Amino acid sequence: MTYSIIGTGNIGKALARQFARSGTAIGVANTRGPESIASMAQEYGNKVVPLTLQEALKADVIILAVPFWAHRDVAKAAPTWQGKVVIDATNAYGVPLSDLDNLPSSAIVAKALPGAHLVKAFNHLPAGVLAQDPATAGGRRVIFLSSDDEGATATVAALVEKLGYAPVSLGKIAQGGQLVQARDKSWAPLIFQDLFKKEK
């Protein structure tokens, strides 16, 4: 299984740090090219590999860590999304509901990526918290997942575990997934909830 992060803002960097910490290889790309990522890769070690956007789009699992509307540019960059697992880590805070056809923002992202298996994840924590060690004496930090595809949810849950977090599924995007979808100028109730799951 190969992984890539598209986006090198605060969320993309925080996730790259977690991949490096867990010893899991991750390709990282942005629209500015691999040279702009070299210093980050140097800081995080050889598990973080700078890629072109086209190279990053070849991964089995792609994490979208870009500003919300930038997903449209990423969508156009791939010849096909068929069979790809895409993790939507974006937030549509401040985007009018009319611009989203009153749908959850992840439903809009999914429409732009025909054939992809989309999972909402890694969007509910601020980057500074996401960058911290997910394990504490009390347990593991929770990452919420929502998707209309059970197989993709299982794939992403396994990745979340590999990175040291505790996955918690909220069910389908239009149902439990609404708990982590920003709407217009309001944050959903589970966004910013820094929860831990106790080890048994």
Rank of each mutant, 00 (worst) to 15 (best):
T2I: 09
Y3V: 11
I5P: 00
I5T: 04
I6K: 07
A14L: 09
S22D: 03
T24G: 07
G27K: 13
G27F: 07
A29Y: 08
N30I: 03
R32L: 08
R32Q: 13
P34F: 10
P34H: 03
S39W: 02
Q42E: 14
K47L: 07
V48C: 09
P50F: 13
E55K: 13
E55I: 06
I62D: 01
V66G: 02
P67F: 04
H71E: 03
D73Y: 10
A75K: 03
A75V: 08
A78G: 06
A78Y: 03
P79L: 14
G83S: 14
K84C: 08
I87H: 01
I87N: 04
A89Q: 07
T90D: 00
N91D: 08
N91M: 10
P96C: 04
D99V: 00
P104L: 10
P104K: 06
S105V: 03
V109F: 00
K111I: 00
L118K: 05
V119R: 02
K120G: 06
A127H: 09
P134I: 05
P134C: 11
V142H: 04
F144W: 10
L145Y: 02
D148I: 10
D149E: 13
D149K: 01
T153G: 12
T153N: 12
A154I: 07
T155N: 05
V156L: 09
A157L: 13
A157D: 09
A157F: 09
E161A: 03
K162Q: 09
A166E: 11
P167F: 03
V168N: 05
S169G: 09
S169M: 03
A174S: 15
Q178W: 00
Q181E: 15
D184Y: 07
K185G: 02
K185S: 05
S186W: 01
S186N: 06
W187C: 01
D194V: 14
D194N: 15
F196P: 00
F196H: 14
K197G: 02
K200E: 12
K200Q: 12
